[in-house]
């Protein structure tokens, strides 16, 4: 489990989430409701943190230094919230098999609300600073156009696929955990500044997803119930024989955990479908015919985490 933290280190909690879903599918165990809500809150907060990092660094790639300082400022606030609940800044190992590791400390949910109130207006600031910036638009619009057919053929997922105009989000299309209880939209690329599926669309999908994450967290914070946070499981966990493949939506796309168990306490084989790996494989396809300088842009908009690529 701790290794999944270090696989996609920008979105550790979403990775933990996927891994736990796979093991729980094999075990067939029930998760307490409060744990489910805490998982969703943490996963969406982590999505915000990850998108903040990516949009800031994408600005850095295209030559705009300042947005990174702005997004990191908000990211530090999210990390403070994480630190308060589980003690780590980056590799949390918060979601455990059968529940979560810690309950929320007193007043934490209120501080999450405070953060959301603080954070929502900041998104407009990023739009003013970067999204509507003429230089930025000139550098990203019509660059690296990914058509929906190519995206599906190459197994792209997440903002890559949605940037191409395909309305595909596993939280809605194949709901896991309690995502079916929340009301949110799936932003897709519409080609406002250029062709559908260019770098700007992919970037903008991420910005708009943060707004949706804020919506989900608000609903989850309001709907959370009291109760236990862990299912009762034996200390040495023997997973029944069989295999399971689960998929869940991380900030980068679909993460799949394929586990083969032979009935012992260790998995016989575990294979991860990592979103960055599949998204990166399309790079050669979409960068054909563009300039070397544009390659930096395209790579930034694909949003790879190298730990996620080579695992």
């Amino acid at each position: 489990m701790p290794y999944t933290d270090r696989k996609d280190y920008c979105a550790s909690i979403n990775e933990n989430f996927g891994c736990c879903l796979a093991v729980e599918k094999l075990l067939g165990c029930e998760i307490p409701e409060r744990a489910d809500y805490l998982r969703v809150i943490m996963a969406e907060l982590n999505r915000i943190a990850s998108h903040l990092l990516v949009t800031g660094v994408f600005g850095l790639d295209t030559g705009a230094f300042t947005p990174m300082l702005h997004t990191f400022r908000e990211r530090e606030r999210v990390l403070d919230l994480f630190e308060e609940i589980c003690g780590a800044r980056l590799t949390y190992h918060y979601i455990r098999i059968g529940g979560v590791s810690q309950d929320a400390p007193e007043g934490w949910l209120n501080r999450v609300r405070e953060f959301l109130d603080y954070f929502e207006p900041k998104i407009d600031e990023y739009n003013q600073l970067l999204s509507e910036n003429t230089i930025f638009i000139n550098r990203t619009a019509n660059i690296g156009v990914l058509t929906p057919e190519v995206a599906i053929n190459f197994g792209c997922s997440g903002p890559m696929l949605r940037g191409s105009g395909v309305k595909w989000d596993l939280r809605k299309n194949d709901p896991y955990s309690i995502y079916d209880r929340f009301d949110f939209d799936i932003p897709v690329g519409t080609g406002e500044k250029g062709a559908v599926g260019d770098c700007w669309d992919r970037y903008m999908v991420r910005i708009r997803e943060m707004v949706q994450s804020v919506r989900i967290i608000r609903q989850a914070v309001d709907g959370i119930t009291e109760g236990p946070i862990k299912a009762k499981l034996p200390r040495v966990l023997k997973v029944p024989q069989g295999e399971a493949y689960t998929r869940s939506e991380t900030p980068r796309g679909e993460v799949g955990f394929y586990i083969v168990s032979t009935g012992e306490d260790k998995a016989y084989r575990m294979r991860l479908r990592s979103p960055s790996f599949c998204n990166l494989s399309v790079l050669a396809e979409i960068s054909q015919g563009s300039m070397i300088a544009d390659l930096v842009c395209i790579l930034g908009s694909v949003d790879i985490i190298l730990g996620d690529v080579d695992r």
Binding site: I152, N153, G155, R269, R271
Partner: peptide, 11 residues
Amino acid sequence: LSFLNLITGVD
């Protein structure tokens, strides 16, 4: 079935 999720080998 147009979306290939993954290819795995198990020994």
